[in-house]
Design a protein around this nucleic acid. Sequence first.
DNA 1: GTAGCTGCAAACTCTTTGCAACTCT
DNA 2: AGAGTTGCAAAGAGTTTGCAGCTAC
Lengths: 138, 138
Amino acid sequence: MSDLEERCTEAGLKMTGQRRAILEVLKTSGDHPSVEDVYDRAKKLDSSISIATVYRTLSLLDELNLVTRHEFQEGYSRYELNWDHHHHLVDLETGEVIEFQNDELERLKVKIARDLGFDLIDHRLELYGKKIKSKSKK
Amino acid sequence: MSDLEERCTEAGLKMTGQRRAILEVLKTSGDHPSVEDVYDRAKKLDSSISIATVYRTLSLLDELNLVTRHEFQEGYSRYELNWDHHHHLVDLETGEVIEFQNDELERLKVKIARDLGFDLIDHRLELYGKKIKSKSKK
DNA sequence: GTAGCTGCAAACTCTTTGCAACTCT
DNA sequence: AGAGTTGCAAAGAGTTTGCAGCTAC
């Protein structure tokens, strides 16, 4: 799906090698990489890339809404492509991030906002939990 | 409600003037102050206090779960007493933070976590919206 | 008395930015 | 050609930490 690049050029961005590398990294990353992660992975595709460019590019992509910036409680940002809408459950024991989607939740959050007199523009929900060990399924 | 101090001493903390000032600030703050905010307000009660102490104390209170640290998308932390459980709706036009609580949401998030095989330990939900202007109530 | 706490300043981490050189279009 | 982009290094913002002196218990 290379219309990611299209959407960048449509927005007036020049397609440089560095940007192509970063987009490629994002497209092939199934996780939620930090800036440093993106930098390390992009360096393998374009060893001349600098971390300043990664910061600048990710900010641009965020402004274009092509990417979502997350701030889990870690003191730094993580990014992911803004393809499908979902939320995150963070495994507190392993740090693993699980994605989920829930229609009832989507409906509910719109209702909550409207009841407060607001149009919902954006939102974020994060769950933090521990894997249920050997509890028998009930 | 001064058993805030009690809970600190119970946890083995010494009750110094600086800590009393910080607790007082938290108790009398209806908003969600940043570290800098807490520092400024506490200085009025104890002008000798340093920002390092504010950082250290808020971290301690966070560990004791007496306080909740928020990271709205601003690049710094904000704190509030951990008294009643609620969530936040941020007015994107004014920056105002509105608190709300919703039972259906509480129920739903536990269910979502359990369906994924997790015990829910913590979570955060933030809504970002704009005030509905003159739409007639329908 | 002493473990814990504090202020200060330096250090650290993450992120942004000024600038001169370079490169897409 | 020229506006946009880059790497570099320096600067910024927020936060943490080492240390010597101080304080609650």
